[in-house]
Design a protein around this nucleic acid. Structure first.
Lengths: 213, 213
DNA sequence: GTTGATACGATGCAACCGCATCGAAATGCT
DNA sequence: AGCATTTCGATGCGGTTGCATCGTATCAAC
């Protein structure tokens, strides 16, 4: 038997290269040749890892969605029970909203894949699963907050999560386009969370990050 | 002088062809040749209308955003003062959320352009303006509702609009991917609007379109 | 050390891309 | 009618694409 290579590792490595290219040169930038060069391997190596380009894209998408959802999940696992539900939910929402500068990469990549998924059902399925997972995470967080008594117990966790999910999704998209909101995205999230609280800090106007001194 | 052509009309005609192709074959489907064929003109005609492909795309994007925003605006102009603010806002939100089957085309096209705008600033600018216009429309609607006494006057129209905009945007994106929400998108919107009312129909749970009999 | 299966990198290929070019057809002005 | 000018459709071109092919290098098994 000849040289043995860890295909799984190599696949992930190539997937990262794909993401890099999509990030820097848009959705069209991920050609087989450029991907190979970016990954520092030959084109043949890429072809042996993935039978077709679509398969490569699907793997890359699965890779990045897993990375993002895991990012949100581990934030919870790490601080489990040590933090309040409000803190956890806030942190989670901010993590998955991808508005921080260092997250623009992920935001760009996801946007590209979302558009692509329009034409390729297999990609859409991956994204659907990712969103479903995120929704479930939000549901869990809200119910957790209800158990700790932080959140109102008359609200429906499913309902709330199903609002938070598109809200986050939309904020990501708008931020990516450079939309200049009259209200910082962080405040929009804070305001939503405030609405879940047992005792809202303020009835309608939330605390602003640019607080009035 | 030779045959005179109405370039503006032809441009719009070609723009529609571009949208058709993007809708049916994804973002990559809009090649010059295919666009020409879809529009029923020669490739030369397309080239005389637009100096470059990017220019063509920019025009097509401007065209479709104008069409969508105008769609929302004229709904208001048509029924001005005859309808209640709640009815107007509801109709407007449903219009721009693009979740109805016949709107999937526009949703797909916008998603493709959004991803593309990541790499082409001129496209991003067009989308930014479109979103800003939509936001202003929402602000106006909310203030209108406050004037008619339907909406609570303690709420900040800017704040609400800046929440509704990403919410709508996210609902569109999720619906496009085929996300199966545990709660219909219409209800999510209804619920938000309910929160603006002077006298909420119900404190936390809105009327569902799939009403309990 | 020989063997043989496997990974490798380079190259080939047909198709397609956006864009430039150009002769022919069409049309309003004189 | 004759002309000048614009529009038209087609073709060419350099470059790139995804994918297939193929000889060579590599390494485990014997």
């Amino acid at each position: 038997m000849p040289k043995q290579v860890d295909y799984e590792t190599r696949r992930r490595h190539i997937a990262e290269a794909v993401c890099d290219l999509i990030d820097r040169h848009g959705p069209e930038g991920a050609t087989l040749r450029d991907v190979a060069q970016q990954a520092g391997v030959s084109m043949g190596a890429v072809q042996r890892c993935f039978a077709t380009k679509d398969e490569m894209l699907a793997f890359a998408l699965h890779h990045i969605t897993e990375r993002i959802t895991a990012q949100g999940q581990e934030e919870i696992d790490a601080s489990a029970a040590k933090e309040s539900a409000v803190t956890l939910l806030t942190a989670t929402l901010r993590t998955i909203t991808l508005i921080e500068p260092h997250q623009r990469r992920d935001a760009r990549i996801l946007a590209a894949f979302t558009a692509h998924a329009t034409a390729i059902p297999s990609l859409a399925e991956i994204l659907r699963q990712a969103h479903a997972k995120t929704r479930d995470l939000l549901v869990w967080l809200i119910r957790y907050g209800q158990r700790t008594g932080e959140f109102r117990d008359d609200l429906d966790a499913d309902l709330e999560a199903e609002t938070l999910l598109p809200l986050v999704e939309g904020l990501t998209s708008l931020a990516l386009l450079g939309h200049r909101p009259t209200v910082p995205a962080h405040d929009t999230l804070t305001r939503r969370i405030d609405g879940l609280l047992m005792q809202p800090s303020r009835p309608s106007r939330p605390a602003s990050s640019t607080a009035i001194t």
